[in-house]
Simulated assay, not measured.
Amino acid sequence: MSLAYNGTPFHGWQCQPNAISVQEVLEEALATVLRIPIKITGAGRTDTGVHAKLMVAHFDADIPQKVYDNLVYLLNQYLKKEIVIHSIQKVKEDAHARFDALIRTYEYHIDVQKNPFSNGLSYVLKDSLDLSKMNEAADLIKTFKDFEAFSKTNTDVKTFFCEISHAEWVKKEGGYVFTITANRFLRNMVRAIVGTLLDVGTNKTSVAEVAEIIKSKQRSNAGFSVPAHGLYLTDIQYPNNIYIN
């Protein structure tokens, strides 16, 4: 299932007690439409306030063909405006939305002035930024594998190794966009990288110091975690052989 959502009203992707999540809303919608309990597994766990232009999730269910053919329409009729289902495709029984993902891409959006049309959808930063230095530091980051310095502390992961294939800042109308692609991301990793690169762009941190920050493996040495509302999950790619035509 491919979908998109505005993360503003949700406390992240994952179900949790006493807080509304994207996963909970989707499971409720599927259970209502299909009239059976449904559990879904997402490709990742976006934090509170983070948006997704493309999220992928999988679920197991025996669905009559007539219902399957109309499932996207039925779900979108039931769901509120913050979530939209793009498509639902049949996959092999052992296909997994999280573990089969080859690469993921995120964008971070910054506006240089207050904009009522992107309120809550981008980070407003009026500081002048040196994009050349920021992209030099972004290129440097790609040469490393261990990103513990950009990971949320006390996180339960077996390895801090990630392979970043793309990291770049570009100007947009009224601001900037940072795009980063990797085989996997750690919790809070993108927001910590963005905060560190903003320190480079405002001359608080040198490009050479970024290398030392990564080598230190200490989150306290990296930059601040930028606000969640500027972050978007934008792409997830899978091997073609998981799909059933």
Rank of each mutant, 00 (worst) to 15 (best):
residue 2 S to R: 14
residue 11 H to E: 07
residue 17 P to T: 10
residue 17 P to K: 13
residue 19 A to I: 00
residue 28 E to K: 15
residue 29 A to N: 01
residue 35 R to V: 03
residue 35 R to Q: 13
residue 36 I to R: 15
residue 41 T to R: 14
residue 46 T to V: 09
residue 48 T to K: 15
residue 50 V to S: 07
residue 52 A to V: 00
residue 56 V to E: 08
residue 58 H to F: 07
residue 60 D to E: 13
residue 66 K to L: 11
residue 66 K to R: 14
residue 66 K to W: 07
residue 68 Y to E: 15
residue 68 Y to N: 09
residue 74 L to Y: 06
residue 77 Q to L: 12
residue 81 K to A: 12
residue 87 S to Q: 11
residue 88 I to V: 10
residue 89 Q to N: 12
residue 94 D to E: 11
residue 96 H to N: 15
residue 103 I to M: 11
residue 117 F to W: 13
residue 126 K to S: 11
residue 129 L to T: 01
residue 132 S to K: 12
residue 138 A to C: 02
residue 141 I to Y: 02
residue 147 F to R: 06
residue 147 F to V: 07
residue 153 T to L: 11
residue 153 T to E: 14
residue 154 N to E: 13
residue 154 N to K: 13
residue 155 T to N: 09
residue 156 D to K: 15
residue 159 T to Y: 09
residue 161 F to R: 14
residue 164 I to N: 03
residue 168 E to K: 15
residue 169 W to G: 01
residue 174 G to N: 07
residue 175 G to L: 05
residue 179 T to K: 15
residue 187 R to Q: 04
residue 192 A to G: 01
residue 195 G to K: 09
residue 200 V to K: 05
residue 201 G to K: 05
residue 203 N to D: 15
residue 204 K to D: 02
residue 207 V to H: 08
residue 207 V to R: 05
residue 213 I to R: 04
residue 216 S to T: 05
residue 217 K to F: 05
residue 221 N to E: 14
residue 221 N to F: 10
residue 221 N to A: 13
residue 222 A to F: 05
residue 224 F to Q: 08
residue 224 F to T: 06
residue 227 P to N: 12
residue 228 A to M: 04
residue 239 P to T: 09
residue 240 N to Q: 13
